[in-house]
Design a binder for these strands. Structure first.
Length: 421
DNA sequence: AGCACA
């Protein structure tokens, strides 16, 4: 037996190390090489608001400090992993976490606030990654600024996305605007599924679509130019087509330079952006007739004078309450000489732009009609029961999903696929 | 795999 003396300092140090005092700063070690702040955010953010991260230090650049805003947030992370069967991991590698023996990270400008301010972490409630496409996320978040990168991943039962903006100002604006809100989505879009990790680089966004690259001032009002208007496009047709993406508040139609234009007002920019994404370049009627070209209007609130066949305010209660147009024949070419086939052929869109391909066989002959699906059966009657192809997923938190709270203890499985709020 | 910040 060998007994030696240990100084009280060393003893304290040992005890300290084995059982350090709680701190809102956590020390993480055994991180993968060149671990990014994003990876640490992904790991730690579910437990609270991260105030600062210092990573890539230590001899092997494999350690980090993460400071939470509140002590109890650090405690919740520690106790979560203390009782979890799964250790904390980054890139599959077990990470060892302890309370730091410092109470705060001192070397940063505290007035500057949060770290990595230009990246938001978005947690979506009741969704799986197969439910939402990166394109939808992209269009929703592009409404506020240029989106440089999007990474999506599954965290437990939660679907999360990291979204990088140009700067923290835009990111915080987005956070304020979208936190707790629902994003519109379309289950039937064939291009929704995105499995596992997916990253869109800002430089290659054009591969995703024509939208989003240009930094035009977004608006809740869309300006639609109807090209090649061989057939009648009534205000009801416009209303039907655009209602597939959200509540249409007002429509004003006007002619300019021998072309028909329509201003379509939605409640918010996101809805407008979504409609724009899905409708841009589509034809109202099959055969390339009445092609829509959409841009954001400079207006944000339309003035509708009275009620006419050229302008309408759907927010005025008595005017048009889900008013089914008496004879809604807009889908049939109105010109006598119209090629009948145009109304019978299947839509001939670029498949990548199809909105609801499944129903196009159900309701043949209607270009945008099939895309608004069962809401508008071939009879022309309105069905309010199966109203929408668009659904909403709630963004439950930007910068913070707390497992203890509404947590990943998913309601997702109980959600009927294809319809929920 | 074990505590930085000049």
């Amino acid at each position: 037996m060998q007994i030696s003396e240990m100084s009280t300092e060393v003893a304290e140090q040992r005890l300290f190390r084995n059982n350090p005092m709680a701190s809102k700063v956590l020390h993480l070690r055994n991180l993968p090489w060149l671990c990014t702040e994003e990876e640490l955010v992904e790991l730690c953010n579910p437990f609270g608001e991260i105030v600062f991260i210092k990573c890539n230090f230590g001899a092997n650049r494999n350690q980090a400090f993460v400071e939470f805003a509140e002590l109890n947030q650090a405690i919740s992370m520690m106790s979560y992993y203390a009782s979890s069967s799964e250790p904390a991991k980054v890139r599959g590698q077990t990470v060892y976490i302890q309370y730091s023996n410092q109470q705060e990270i001192v070397n940063y400008n505290k007035s500057a606030g949060a770290i990595a301010g230009n990246v938001l972490i978005v947690t979506m409630e009741g969704v799986q990654c197969s439910d939402i496409s990166i394109e939808v996320i992209h269009v929703v978040f592009s409404a506020y600024g240029y989106v440089h990168k999007i990474a999506t991943f599954e965290k437990g039962a939660c679907f999360q996305a990291l979204i990088q903006f140009s700067n923290s100002d835009i990111a915080s604006e987005v956070k304020t605007a979208l936190n707790g809100r629902c994003i519109p989505r379309d289950y039937t879009n064939p291009h929704l599924p995105v499995k596992g990790h997916s990253v869109i680089e800002g430089t290659s966004q054009s591969a995703v679509g024509p939208y989003g690259n240009k930094r035009v001032p977004e608006s809740n009002v869309l300006l639609a130019f109807i090209k090649d208007m061989e057939y009648a496009v009534t205000i009801d047709v416009i209303h039907t087509v655009f209602s597939a993406y959200g509540t249409v508040l007002k429509i004003v139609m006007f002619e300019k330079n021998n072309g028909m234009h329509a201003l379509v007002q939605y409640p918010d920019v996101i809805t407008a952006a979504t409609a724009k994404m899905y409708l841009e370049g589509h034809c109202i009627y099959d055969g390339g007739y009445c092609k829509l070209h959409l841009s954001y209007s400079r207006h944000t609130n339309l003035t509708v004078m009275g009620d006419s066949d050229k302008s309408r305010d759907y927010t005025i209660p008595e005017t048009r309450v889900v008013a089914a147009p008496p004879a809604f024949t807009g889908w049939q070419p109105s010109a006598p000489a119209a090629p009948v086939s145009a109304a019978v052929q299947m839509p001939s869109y670029d498949p990548s732009r199809l909105i609801i391909p499944a129903s196009s066989s159900t309701y043949p002959g209607q270009s945008l009609m099939p895309h608004s699906g069962p809401a508008y059966p071939a009879t022309g009657a309105y069905s309010s029961t199966s109203a929408a192809s668009l659904h909403a997923s709630r963004l439950i938190s930007l910068y913070g999903m707390h497992p203890g709270a509404s947590g990943p203890s998913g309601s997702s499985s109980s959600q009927p696929h294809g319809y929920y709020q």
